[in-house]
């Protein structure tokens, strides 16, 4: 019996990682930790892209990863700047306190 690691294995791992990230978004209140969970989900998607590209036999999956990576980097930069700006005013990084934005 030979167990060959196919793309499906990687995709399954990615799906579980994505579910973990979504779970983190739901149960955590710290804006920083929620951001890390978003990174976790983006990484799961990247892993799926690479595995899918390998299964289909072309490089487009790996190229898509770069664009996801750039969006993730831009999102982190802007998001962390917003968190720091909020922290300067409110001395807190808890998203519950931001409900005041609703007016």
């Amino acid at each position: 019996m030979s167990l060959v690691v196919t793309s499906g294995w990687y995709m399954t791992l990615a799906a579980v990682l994505f579910a973990l990230g979504a779970l983190g978004i739901l149960i955590r209140r710290n804006a920083l930790v929620m951001f890390m969970c978003i990174e976790l989900m983006l990484n799961a998607v990247n892993l799926t892209f690479v595995a899918a590209g390998r299964a289909l036999g072309n490089l487009d999956g790996q190229l898509a990863v770069f664009f996801v990576l750039v969006v993730a980097a831009a999102e982190v930069v802007v998001g962390l700047a917003i968190i720091v700006a909020i922290f300067r005013r409110r001395q807190s990084a808890s998203v519950d306190e931001l409900s005041e934005l609703a007016g």
Partner: peptide, 18 residues
């Protein structure tokens, strides 16, 4: 893992050498 095509085994690994 049956929902994924098993092309990876047949395909040329060099085609996806990144």
């Amino acid at each position: 893992f049956a929902w994924v095509p098993v092309a990876s085994a047949a395909a040329d690994p060099q085609a996806t050498n990144g």
